[in-house]
């Protein structure tokens, strides 16, 4: 890459650090969230610089887009619930707790400086050469049923990780739904919008494009960067974008279909794993020749579940239609 690449990396590193410090200390929370979204986009660039295009795809959709929507949605709820008192309360906390805040800041700084030295030493001493696990993965690629190494790791060598990750996602959705069902005094979060011809035209153009991109990413996964995660995330982002333009999305699904989509990825993993346990003697151990098909099946269902779960986490909680079967617990 030469000197240009070096200068670019140096600037990127500098901007990352400046952004991260700014987002902690800038006085407005809204500015902090916007800086965080910018940081997410630059992280995507950093992953590309570090030869990790798969991670870049996931980060661009999640770190920059979905996380930003989550934070901005919460900020909107907080500031509009109590007539902006919440938005000023951070400043009030700052002003009224000065002595203790200084103490907290000094103690925190001490802890961080004490931790910084050993962590920098670890970074300095960590290996800078060596091939890591690349040769081991390359040697076993022939039996995995796919030709892309990251997909092979995600759904073959370490498929147990993916199973547990779907479990984490499922537990988070369950916890979120529990919070929402208990809560009967929620404000509607959807902002009523007047019909907007520009917005209508835009989503009509974008929707088919984004659906195609999502399907294409899923199909790409078996031989190059892409796969179930990126595809599910792009699909989730599409549905969230559609809801933000005021269209009905999750409300159109019958509750049963929605619940089935939420669990199908996880259930499929468990069923396939258990079947392999009986046939092959080990959990999620694919038989010779079947690996490619099984991975594709797992990928399709995992992608559906990731998309549904992320949409539910980001905006499903403001969709009352899903809960109309549950009576008020009180």
């Amino acid at each position: 890459m030469g000197p240009v690449g070096g200068v670019f990396d140096g600037l990127l590193a500098l901007v990352l650090l400046v952004l991260s410090i700014r987002l902690l200390f800038v006085s407005s929370l809204f500015h902090a969230v916007v800086l965080f979204i910018a940081l997410g986009l630059l992280m995507g660039l950093t992953w590309v610089r570090l030869q990790a295009p798969d991670v870049a795809l996931a980060e661009a959709a999640i770190g920059a887009a979905l996380t930003g929507v989550l934070f901005i949605d919460l900020l909107y709820k907080l500031t509009h619930r109590n007539n902006i008192r919440s938005s000023v309360s951070e400043r009030l906390i700052y002003e009224q707790t000065m002595p203790r805040r200084w103490l907290t800041a000094c103690l925190s700084a001490l802890v961080c400086i004490a931790l910084l030295a050993p962590l920098l030493m670890v970074a300095a001493q960590s290996p800078t050469t060596g091939a890591g696990l690349t040769p081991a993965v390359s040697a076993a690629m022939a039996a995995t049923g796919v030709t892309h190494e990251v997909t092979a790791v995600l759904l073959n060598f370490r498929s147990f990780d993916t199973l547990l990750e779907l479990t984490v996602l499922f537990v988070a959705v369950l916890a979120a739904l529990t919070l929402r069902v208990m809560d009967t005094s929620s404000l509607p979060t959807a902002i009523p919008k007047p019909p907007d011809p520009l917005m209508d035209g835009l989503w009509r153009l974008l929707l088919p494009l984004l659906v195609a991109v999502s399907g294409y990413l899923l199909w790409l996964g078996s031989f190059t960067s892409g796969g179930a995660f990126q595809s599910g995330i792009v699909m989730a982002a599409t549905i969230i974008l559609l809801s933000l333009t005021g269209q009905r999305t999750l409300e159109l699904l019958p509750p049963l279909v929605w619940r089935a989509l939420l669990v199908v990825g996880l259930l499929n993993f468990i069923v396939v794993g258990a079947a392999m346990l009986m046939l092959e003697g080990a959990f999620l151990q694919y038989p010779q020749g079947w690996a490619g098909g099984l991975i594709l099946l797992l990928e399709v269902t995992a992608s559906l579940t990731i998309a549904t779960a992320l949409v539910t986490l980001v905006l499903g909680l403001s969709v009352p239609a899903m809960f109309k079967r549950y009576p008020d617990p009180r």
Partner: peptide, 14 residues
């Protein structure tokens, strides 16, 4: 680049 940490980070992001 080593694909194993890449897969772990993709899982971690979700």
């Amino acid at each position: 680049a080593d694909p194993v940490p890449h897969a772990m980070v993709i899982t971690g992001i979700v």
